[in-house]
Amino acid sequence: MTEASLYFLQQIINGLTIGSTYALIAIGYTMVYGIIGMINFAHGEIYMIGSYVAFIVITGLLGMGMVALPVVLFIALVVAMVVASSYGWAIERVAYRPLRGSNRLIALISAIGMSIFLQNYVVLAQGSRDVAMPPLVSGSLVEFGSLETFQVTISWMQLLIWVVTLISMTVLTLFISRSRMGRACRACAEDIGMTNLLGIDTNRIIAMTFVIGAALAAVAGLLLGLYYGVVNPFIGFIAGLKAFTAAVLGGIGSIPGAMLGGLILGVTEALTAAYFPSEYKDVVAFSLLVLILLFRPTGILGKPEVEKV
């Protein structure tokens, strides 16, 4: 392979890695939107909290002398998911549920307030400095191409991100399509009033979507925490913005759309940084979003809206 194509391949690999984590966070936006039609601006902060919890658990376990890394990571994953889910649940209960039935924008402002609150809460609890962790999963899995031209590497960490993302997505898809709760969930997205009439506790279903979204955001928090090795209280905002963009890109409300949107956004960013000055990568990402929406006003996989009279 030529140098140019190897370089291209490497950038695609980088883009898919970051894209899969966008996808994980985007699920939370898209599921909540699909059911109650609100943008949960505090979702990015849940990801940040998940990352912090993962850091705390990993450092704590390693500090206590536990050495089996897979076990440590697994425990961290579970704890991060549980804590983040509790946050997701509590936020819904405190900030959104009392507002149900009023204007959608009311809940949006409440979400922005919640986001400011959580950010500053973590600053007070954990300090505003970057917290860094030594690399735990290092080394590369595949290296090909020659040193003289360009060497493509896929690291273990990247592989781990792909695998965990894939597993989470599969489990989620199965859950949504096969389980009773999943069916109720889809029914709610279709018509929440009707679902309620059929005797399904819609409040519970809504709470559950927040919990699932938060748990997936915590997975992303753990993975990105390991990948970058750094966490601070302000990572949630920009990650949330990107993930939300991904969700809209794919068609908000659609779960496969969120996955696709995340990957497309990640790859676009990587390729922009590869062939243009990297300071323009956000401009290109947002321009792409505008363009796609102009030609497909409901996103790539979104259902076209039917205007009912």
Binding site: Y7, A273, S278
Partner: peptide, 20 residues
């Protein structure tokens, strides 16, 4: 001569570019 975004976390694209 290039800028990156302050607060960004992912520099893999930039590094590949430097390598190239």
């Amino acid at each position: 001569f290039e800028g990156v975004t302050a607060g960004d976390k992912d520099f893999s694209a930039l590094i590949a570019k430097l390598q190239k």
